[in-house]
Structure formats: C-alpha cells, structure tokens
Design a protein around this nucleic acid. Structure first.
Lengths: 236, 236
DNA sequence: CTCCGACATTGAACATGTTCAAATAATAAT
DNA sequence: ATTATTATTTGAACATGTTCAATGTCGGAG
C-alpha cells in the first residue's frame, strides 16, 4: 500500500535513464562543439544519440538546459582545478589569477556554444536567466569558488563578504569577452583578466595601507554599500 | 531598355509601405508593452495590424529587429533629451547624471520587452548582437551621446577618447539592472547610477589634482591601456 | 505467475519564427 | 492604351523548439 520508506536504489527499468541521459548529453555537446549551438537541432541530437526527439525533453527541459547542465559540470571541474592549483599559492593576486585563468582553460574549446548561457540574460523570470532566481544555486556555487580563492588572505570583513560576488560578476564579463575574442588561444582575454586583477588587488592593498587608507577607505565603503543596496550580495 | 539613371522618387505603389511599416511597428510595440516580448506572436502583431504575417517580415528581418528599431528611435529621443537638458549644466557629474537618468526615463515603460535587446549578446556573429559588428552604427551613435555629455568639461585627451565608451558600457549594465529592478519607479537603479557616477567623477577629478595625481595616474593609464588593447575603443 | 505502478520511450502533433513563390497594384516606359 | 518594372502583399509551406497521449518495460507486491 504505502511505499514503506526504503529509498529506492534501483528503480524501475533500472538506471537505464542514466545512460540515456548521458548519451544525449554527450552527443549534444559534441554536436554543439562541431557546429555551434544554433545550427544543432534537437532532432539532430536525438538522432545522433539514437533516441526519439521526445527523449531529449524527458531529460532536459530545453535545448539551453543542456548547455546549463554542461555549465554545472564546468563548475565542478573549476572547483577541483582551483583547489588543486591553489596549493602553495598564498598571495591574493596569484590566487585570483588561478581562479580566473583556470576557468577560461576549462572553457577553451567550447566558445562556440557558450553564448547560449547568456540567451536569457534580459529575461528576469526565465529559469535559465544568468541573474535570475532560477539559477541562484549555480550562482552560489560559483561564488563559493571565488570565496575559496580569497580564503586565507588578509581582508576586511566587508571585502571578504563582497569580493567573491564582485569576482563572479567580473568573471561573467570575462567569459563574454572570451567568446568574442578571436586572438590565438584567447590571449587577449587572458591579458585583460590579468590587468583587471592587477588593478583590483592593488586597490585592495591600498585600502589596507595605513598611509593612504584615509583617502581610499571612503571609496571602498561606498562601493560596498552600493553593491549591498543593489541586493547583489546574493541570497536574500 | 536601360533604367535611364533617374533615381526614382515616388516608386511603385507610392509610399504605401511607409504606412504599413509604421502600423506594424506601432502595433508590435503596443503588444510588447502589454504582454511582453515572448508572449507576443508575429501572427498576433500581423493580425492586429491587419496585414498578412509575411508583411511583417517584408519590413523587419526578425521579431527582435522590431525591438532594435524601437531602440534606434530611443537613441534619437535620448540625443534630443540630452541636448535639451544639458543646457546650462557645466559640471561633469551633473552632465553625466543627465545622460544616464534621461535614458532610463525614456525606457521606463518598456522594461517588459527591453530584454530582447540582449538576446544575442552571447552570439558574436548575430546581426543584432549588442557587441557585434552588425550593431556598430547604433553603438557609435550611442557613444556619441555620451561624448556630447562630456563635451566642454576639462579632461585629458585619453579620457575624452575613452570615457564615452566606458559610459556606454556602464549604461548598458544599467539597463540590465533596470530590467531586473522591481522597486517603485526603479529608484534602485537610479540610485545605483548616481553612486557609480559619483565614484567615476571623483576618480577623474583625482587624476587631475596635482597632489594625488602621481599616485593615481598610473592606474588611469593602465585602465585606458587595457580598454584600448581590448579593441574596445570602437571603430577599428 | 500475474499484475501494478513507476520509469522510460516513442513519434506525432503543436506553436511559432521565418521563407518564399505567387498575386496584386501602382508607376514608368513605349 | 499597353506593357514592363518595381514595390507591396498574401498565405501557405517550412524548420525547429516543445508538448503530449500512448506505449513499452522492468521490478516487485500479491
């Protein structure tokens, strides 16, 4: 009568779904990489994965959702990579560099379909909007990575709270630039990232120096206040 | 036999097209305002404008193109409004405020479909991509408005060249925030704009002060250099 | 062993953006 | 007046993202 607790392990038709989902996912990514996002059709994906069209929608609510799933995976990879490469590095600037560049390295072969992530940026209510409620979880995850990057460095409480968010935003912009960057290996984007990180860390260091602090502190306060008022500190 | 030069003035079927185009355009905006961009169908638009579906595509290459046309119109309004309101104001901060706030005022009733402008942001090759080649003309126009806003103020050559571009970028971000802002009259966005402009002008003023200049100048140089390298100064 | 129920899969149907060949004028050329 | 040309308009056809009712399939409850 009742399902007697016992969280099911092997549900009906076993985890057949897992394999199908993976097949669809992998196939889609391959096609996206080859032909780009727009050119690749859901029917193409289904056919290539040897399933019916509807199957794709049983596992992914939309075409863009496949890219979103890919990006979830990217976040995991990024977290691992950062944790790995952060060993030893203690300086703020260096740690931020690791966080940024490693992300771009992970994305390097996928510029052709990465743009799909931004498709609903102007649509606050869409579940896949980069800034929307529907993506809050992923956002928190991503922010957490930057949190880890600045962990252990000497920062004011305010900065420790807001910097990860700022970095996340900056890194979003970086990804956009990355998509547009046609230079060999997207060096231009990498250089831009370095430049921005240089400025940012210099600013932060300044606000800690007793000498200039009185002059710069009000700025920091103002910037942080603005971000807070904008409700951008996240989870609310 | 040959079309003997004579650039045609009143072409076939007279300017009937003008009226039709306008009808489609107005109707579309009305529907967009009422129901939003996604919800409104090209068939809805055509039906409401009393033309066949295909007619809409004779005048606009795509649904988004209608919004793009709307935005062209916004630019014109913005240019006028700025020119008008700028009279008398001489201070940089005040002038920038005019440029920003007047833009938001023009857009205030259209947040529901404004997001369509950003739909192809992640798609460098799309003709309507905000950062793409296809929109360079509009971009230049918009940048020119900010150029006018800073005209007459005392700025270094480098700043005079790059500030308009920076302001354009900032104002894009502002529009995004604007779309997401559900506060009464989008006051939050207006406040954010003020905050950012405060910081920006303070920074600029600093770089002109003989006292602090030696400290801040390198920063400015670096920032400008970065923007330049990114190829963001435009027209190239 | 049989049947139930949850998961999985299918493919046709639908909605909507877009294209296009054909039809319809209005003007210009003869 | 007749024809040619060009602009305009039409509506059906197409492509593709998405939905859905129907069907299949497996594991376990009885």
């Amino acid at each position: 009568m009742f399902n007697v607790g016992a969280d099911v392990i092997g549900t009906a038709k076993k985890g057949a779904g897992e394999k199908t989902k993976a097949a669809i996912f992998e196939t889609a990514l391959e096609l996206f990489r080859r032909g780009g996002f727009e050119v690749t059709t859901m029917r193409d994906i289904a056919r290539s994965a040897k399933v019916a069209t509807g199957a794709a929608y049983y596992y992914f609510p939309s075409k863009e959702a496949i890219v979103a799933a890919y990006y979830d995976q990217v976040q995991v990879l990024h977290a691992e990579k950062v944790r790995l490469e952060l060993g030893g590095k203690a300086g703020l600037r260096e740690r931020l560099g690791v966080a940024m560049h490693s992300k771009l390295e992970i994305l390097k072969d996928d510029r052709k379909f990465l743009g799909a992530l931004f498709r609903y940026t102007g649509d606050p209510d869409h579940p896949l909007s980069v800034f929307g409620k529907g993506t809050q979880a992923q956002r928190s995850q991503s922010v957490a990575i930057f949190q880890e990057a600045i962990a252990g460095t000497d920062l004011s409480e305010a900065l420790r709270q807001l910097l990860p968010w700022v970095l996340w935003l900056a890194h979003l912009g970086m990804i956009l630039v990355f998509i547009y960057d046609e230079t060999e290996g997207q060096q231009r984007t990498h250089r831009l990232a370095d430049g921005i990180l240089d400025l940012l860390t210099q600013f932060i260091v300044l606000t800690s120096s007793a000498l200039v602090r009185p002059f710069v502190q009000p700025w920091q306060t103002k910037i942080l206040g603005m971000l807070r008022e904008a409700g951008w500190t996240g989870e609310t």
